[in-house]
Design a protein around this nucleic acid. Structure first.
Length: 891
RNA sequence: GCGCGCUUAGCUCAGUGGUAGAGCACAUCCUUCACACGGAUGGGGUCGCAGGUUCGAACCCUGCAGCGCGCACCA
C-alpha cells in the first residue's frame, strides 16, 4: 500500500498501467474463447495523421464500449489500424520533396518516389498509434492492420477483379471532378460545394446570317469561351425561338456555332441563353452528348489555358485568363455588363482549390448490392444512432452515381489491369483503349501480371483510398480466400463508431461491400459521434488554430480527465462545443475520487468485509442502494448508447451522493474517537461501495480506477480491474426504502438547517444549537449525524419547547426546528427579508388556490395530482402563518 | 430549391404533459485534521415568436423568425 500524495498525479500512473495491460495481454482477443464475442473495428486514422479531439471522442467511445463488453463477460476484439490516405500522404511527401530537394515526384520516378513514401510512413506512421495508446485505447495491437499491407492489398485487387468480371467496373471517358493541384480525378464526395462571390458576365454573340443582330448570353466563365461549341436556349422560350437552328459567331477563336434548343436551360436565369462548353461543365457535357456536339478542351491538367489559336490567352492561369477574356470581349464591344454574383463552386477536399470539370479516361464502379444495403438500414438490421441519419443515408442510396475509383496518383493500390504493348498506341498511352478492347484480349485484369509480363504495361493509376477502406471490417480479419478463426469468431462486428461526415465515404460503402463479399452486414449498430466545434461554433481546424492538441490536454489533465471531461458533455445527437473547462472538470473529478480513497486509507489500510447489511445504519444502506440503482441504470443507458448521461450519473453519484452526503454523515465513525466496531462497519461499507464504483467507472477512467483498486487492495498485484466481470448480486438484497427514507429525511433536514444558519449569517459558525419540537419518533438516534451535517454543536429534542417570539425556525421532515439567537441580528434587515418572503408565499398560495378552485382541474386531473396540490397549499399556508408570526415578533 | 437539426440562467447544455434543472461563471462566507483540482449559502430564466390541442404545455400540433448542417447540373 503506497503513500497517498495530496493531489492525484495522473501522468506516471497512466503510463504504468498501459504498460501493465500490454504486458498482461489484456487487450488480445482469443478466437477460441467460449465466451460470446464482441467486436469493433477502428475507423483507421490516416497513417501520417496526428491525433485531434475528434479522434479522442471517437476512440474514447470505442474504448468504453470495448471495456464495458469485457466487464459483461464478452470476448472482445477491438481491431486497430491505419489508412494509407492516398492523396493526403502523397501530398505530404511531395511537399517535403519540393521543399528539401526542389524535386517533383516525376524527377524521382515511380519506384523511387514510392520508396520515399514508405520511408515517410515508417517514420511517421506510428505517431497516431502512440497517441491512441496514450489515451488508453484497449486495442488488440497484435492485430494491427494497414490498408497497404500485402494481404490487404490482395483483398483490394481481388475485389476490383471480381467487380470487373461482374461488369460493375468499367473504363470510360467521362467528365469528372479534376483537381488541378493534385492532378487527379476525384469522386463527387471529395468535392466541397462552397458559396463564392463571383461575377456574372453578360455578353453578346453576333448572328452569322444577320450582321448587326446579336444573341445575349450570360456566363461566369468567359475564359472557357474558346471551348464553346453551341449556344442553347429553352425550346419553350418565345424570345429565342427564331434563333434556333441558326448560327452565331464565337468571337475567339472565330467560329460559327449553332443555336440549339434544350430543356435544361432555365428561362429565368440570366439572359435565358447558355453557352455550351462540353469539355468544361458537366451539364454542358450532357447537352453536348444529346446534340452530338464536338468537345473542345481548352484547359491543361493544371488549369492553364491551352488554345494556341488565341496566343494572348494561351498558357494563362484560368483565373487570370478569366479577366483577360472579359477584357477582350469588352474591347470587341461584345461585353454588355458584369454583375456581382454569388454561386456555389466545387472545391477539392484536400487541395482547397476549385475543381475543374474535365473529360478524362477513368475507371468507374456501379455500386453492388444497393437495394440490400438500403433495406438493411431501412428495416433496422443495421441501426443508426441517432436514427435521423438513416434518412440521410437513404437519400444518398437513392441517388447513387457511379463512383470514379481511379486516381492519377502513385501512392495507393495500383489498378490490377495490364494492357498489351502492341495494342497500345505509343503516342496516346493507355487512354486509347476503350472497354470493348477487353474482348480482344488486349487487357488483362487479374491479381497477378500476365505470364508473358514483358509484353504488358500496367495501368498507372491507383484506386481511391475509400476503395480499400470499404473492405476494412472483413479484410482486416482474414487473408484473401481464408476463413480465419478471427473472422469466424468476430465477424460481423457489433458496433461502428464514426462521424456522420463519412456516411457516404465509408459507412454506406462498407455496407454494400459487406453484403457483396461476405454475404453479411459488416456491423449491427452505427453510432455517429458529435462533431466537435469551438465555443464560437466553428469546426476545429488547423488553419483557424482553434484545435487544442489532445496530447497537451493529457499532459495537463491526464488521459482519464480528458476522456471523462469530454464524454460528460458529449450530447446524443448534436454537435459538441468544446471548452477546456470541461477537461479541467474531468481532472478535478479524478482528484475528488482519489481523495475520497485517500480519506479512507487514513482511517486504516486493511480491507474490511461487509457484515450483515440489514443491521446497518440508514446512511450505509442508503448509499449501497443508490449504487445498486446506479448500476442498474447504467446497464440501461449503455443499451441506448447514452454515453454523456452515463458519465453524468457516475459524476453525480460520487460527488453528490457518496462524498457530500454519505462520507459527511459517517465522518465521525472514521475519527480516532470512534469505536472500532463503528469504524469497521463504515470501512466495510466504503470498500463495498467504492470497489464496485471503481469498476463501473473503469471504462471511462481506466487508469485511475485500476490504480485505486490496487492501492485500496480491491485488486491484488497481478490482477486487473479491467478483466473483472461485473457482479450480478446487488449490495442490498432487501427493500431499502425505510432506511433510505430516513437517510433522505436527515439529509434534507440538514440542508434546511444550513439554510437557516446562512440566512442569519451564521453559515460558518459551528457553535449553534438547534431545538427540535415535535421530532419524528426515531430522531433521537440520529441527532449526532444531523448536528454534524448541519454544522451545529448540538441538536436538542424538546417537545415542550416554547420559542420566544421571532425565533428563526424551519419546518423539516424531522420536525419543527428552532435556532435560538443568543447572538444579535439586524432587526430591520430581518423584517425586510421576511416581508419579501411572505409576499412570495402569498403568490404561491394564490396559485394553488386558483388551481384547486378550478372545477375542471379538480374533476379531471388524476386524484393523486389533486392531493399533491392540496398538500402543497397546506404547506405554503403554514409557512405563511409562521412567517407572519415572526414578523409580528420583530415589531 | 429540397431535407435535417437547433433555439431553456451570462456560457455550455439536461429536461417528451403535473411546483423550471446541472456544471461553469458570478456574489458572500469558510484555509475545520480527504480534497481550495475543496466546502457552505445565495442571486439569476415571460423555456425564440404567434396560434392551436389539453383541466394543465419548455414538452404535443400548425405557422413564422433566427442560426447551423447536409443534398441539388441555374450557366
Amino acid at each position: 500500500m503506497s503513500e497517498f500524495a495530496k493531489a492525484y498525479e495522473p501522468q506516471a500512473v497512466e503510463a504504468k498501467w498501459y504498460a501493465a495491460w500490454i504486458d498482461g495481454k489484456c487487450f488480445e482477443a482469443d478466437p477460441s474463447s467460449a465466451k460470446d464475442a464482441y467486436s469493433i473495428v477502428i475507423p483507421p486514422p490516416n497513417v501520417t495523421g496526428i491525433l485531434h479531439l475528434g479522434h479522442v471522442l471517437n476512440n474514447a467511445l470505442q474504448d468504453i464500449l470495448a471495456r464495458r463488453a469485457r466487464q459483461e463477460g464478452k470476448e472482445v476484439l477491438w481491431l486497430p489500424g491505419t489508412d494509407h490516405a492516398g492523396i493526403a500522404t502523397q501530398a505530404k511527401v511531395e511537399r517535403e520533396l519540393r521543399e528539401n530537394e526542389g524535386k517533383t515526384r516525376r524527377d524521382l520516378g515511380r519506384a523511387e518516389f514510392l520508396k520515399r513514401v514508405w520511408d515517410f510512413k515508417n517514420k511517421h506512421g506510428d505517431i497516431i498509434i502512440q497517441q491512441l495508446k496514450r489515451l488508453g485505447c484497449s486495442c488488440d495491437w497484435s492485430r494491427e492492420r494497414f490498408t497497404m499491407d500485402e494481404s490487404y492489398t490482395k483483398w483490394v485487387s481481388h475485389v476490383f477483379v471480381e467487380l470487373f468480371k461482374q461488369g460493375l467496373i468499367y473504363r470510360g471517358k467521362r467528365i469528372v471532378n479534376w483537381c488541378p493541384v493534385s492532378l487527379t480525378a476525384l469522386s463527387d464526395e471529395e468535392v466541397i460545394m462552397t458559396p463564392q462571390r463571383s461575377k456574372l458576365y453578360f455578353m453578346k454573340y453576333e448572328l452569322a446570317d444577320a450582321p448587326g443582330e446579336f444573341l445575349e448570353i450570360s456566363t461566369t466563365r468567359p475564359e472557357t469561351l474558346m471551348g464553346d461549341v453551341a449556344v442553347a436556349v429553352n425550346p419553350k422560350d418565345p424570345r429565342f425561338s427564331k434563333y434556333i437552328g441558326r448560327m452565331v459567331k464565337r468571337p475567339f477563336p472565330h467560329a460559327d456555332i449553332p443555336v440549339i434548343a434544350d430543356d435544361h436551360v432555365d428561362i429565368e436565369f440570366g439572359t435565358g441563353a447558355l453557352k455550351i462548353t462540353p469539355a468544361h461543365d458537366k451539364a454542358d457535357f450532357e447537352i453536348g452528348m444529346r446534340h452530338g456536339l464536338e468537345i473542345i478542351d481548352v484547359l491543361t491538367p493544371d488549369a492553364h489555358i491551352h488554345c494556341p489559336d488565341c496566343p494572348d490567352l494561351h498558357g494563362l492561369d484560368r483565373f487570370v485568363a478569366r479577366k483577360k477574356a472579359a477584357a477582350k470581349l469588352e474591347e470587341m464591344g461584345l461585353l454588355i455588363k458584369v454583375e456581382e454574383y454569388e454561386n456555389n463552386v466545387g472545391f477539392s477536399e484536400r487541395a482547397h482549390v476549385p475543381i475543374e470539370p474535365r473529360i478524362s479516361m477513368q475507371w468507374f464502379l456501379k455500386y453492388p448490392c444497393v437495394q440490400e444495403a438500403a433495406d438493411a438500414v431501412a428495416n433496422g438490421d443495421i441501426k443508426f444512432r441517432p436514427e435521423r441519419w438513416a434518412k440521410t443515408y437513404a437519400h444518398w442510396m437513392e441517388n447513387l452515381q457511379d463512383w470514379c475509383i481511379s486516381r492519377q496518383l502513385w501512392w495507393g493500390h495500383q489498378i490490377p489491369v495490364w494492357y498489351h504493348k502492341e495494342k497500345l498506341d505509343p503516342l496516346k498511352n493507355a487512354e486509347s483503349l476503350e472497354m470493348a478492347d477487353f474482348e480482344k484480349g488486349d487487357i488483362h485484369v487479374g491479381l497477378d501480371a500476365p505470364a508473358d509480363g514483358e509484353n504488358w504495361v500496367r495501368d498507372e493509376d491507383v484506386m481511391d483510398t475509400w476503395f480499400s477502406s470499404w473492405l476494412w471490417p472483413f479484410a482486416t480479419m482474414s487473408d484473401l480466400g481464408e476463413n480465419s478463426a478471427t473472422l469466424k469468431k468476430f465477424y460481423p462486428t457489433d458496433d461502428l463508431v464514426t462521424g456522420p461526415d463519412i456516411i457516404f465515404f465509408w459507412v454506406a460503402r462498407m455496407i454494400m461491400a459487406g453484403f457483396q463479399f461476405t454475404g453479411e452486414l459488416p456491423f449491427k449498430n452505427v453510432f455517429f459521434t458529435s462533431i466537435i466545434r469551438d465555443l464560437q461554433g466553428r469546426k476545429m481546424s488547423k488553419s483557424l488554430g482553434n484545435s487544442p492538441d489532445p496530447i497537451d490536454l493529457m499532459e495537463k489533465y491526464g488521459a482519464d480527465g480528458l476522456r471523462f471531461g469530454l464524454l460528460r458533455i458529449a450530447p446524443v445527437g448534436s454537435d459538441l462545443r468544446f471548452d477546456e473547462v470541461s477537461v479541467e472538470e474531468g481532472r478535478n473529478f479524478a482528484n475528488k475520487l482519489y481523495n475520497a480513497c485517500r480519506f479512507r486509507q487514513m482511517a486504516g489500510t486493511d480491507l474490511v468485509e461487509l457484515g450483515d447489511v440489514k443491521t446497518f445504519p440508514p446512511y450505509h444502506i442508503d448509499i449501497m442502494a443508490k449504487l445498486d440503482a446506479l448500476s442498474a441504470d447504467l446497464t440501461e443507458s449503455y443499451a441506448e448508447y447514452r454515453f454523456g448521461e452515463i458519465a453524468q450519473r457516475l459524476y453525480e453519484f460520487l460527488w453528490n451522493e457518496f462524498c457530500d452526503k454519505f462520507l459527511e454523515a459517517v465522518k465521525l465513525d472514521l475519527r480516532e474517537s470512534a469505536t472500532s466496531e463503528a469504524r469497521a462497519l463504515t470501512l466495510g461499507t466504503f470498500d463495498a461501495v467504492m470497489s464496485r464504483y471503481l469498476q463501473l467507472m473503469s471504462p471511462y477512467m481506466p487508469h485511475i480506477t485500476e490504480e485505486l483498486s490496487l492501492r485500496m487492495g480491491y485488486m491484488k498485484e497481478g490482477e486487473f480491474l479491467m478483466q473483472q466481470v461485473l457482479p450480478s448480486e446487488p449490495l442490498v438484497p432487501f427493500d431499502p426504502s425505510a432506511a433510505q427514507a430516513r437517510a433522505a429525511a436527515i439529509y434534507e433536514s440538514a440542508g434546511r438547517l444550513r439554510n437557516l444558519k446562512a440566512e442569519y449569517n451564521l453559515g460558518s459558525r459551528k457553535d449553534v444549537r438547534f431545538i427540535v419540537k415535535g421530532a419524528i419518533n426515531w430522531l433521537s438516534e440520529e441527532t449526532k449525524v444531523l448536528a454534524l451535517l448541519a454544522g451545529a454543536a448540538e441538536i436538542v429534542l424538546d417537545s415542550s419547547y416554547e420559542a420566544q417570539k421571532g425565533t428563526p425556525a424551519a419546518l423539516t421532515p424531522v420536525g419543527e426546528v428552532y435556532l435560538p439567537m443568543e447572538g444579535l441580528i439586524d432587526v430591520e434587515a430581518e423584517r425586510i427579508r421576511i416581508s419579501k418572503e411572505i409576499e412570495k408565499i402569498g403568490i404561491e398560495v394564490r396559485k394553488c388556490e386558483g388551481k384547486l378552485g378550478n372545477a375542471s382541474f379538480v374533476d379531471r386531473a388524476p386524484p393523486e395530482v389533486v392531493e399533491q396540490e392540496k398538500a402543497r397549499l397546506e404547506e405554503w399556508k403554514s409557512k405563511h402563518v409562521q412567517l407572519s408570526e415572526m414578523l409580528a415578533a420583530l415589531a
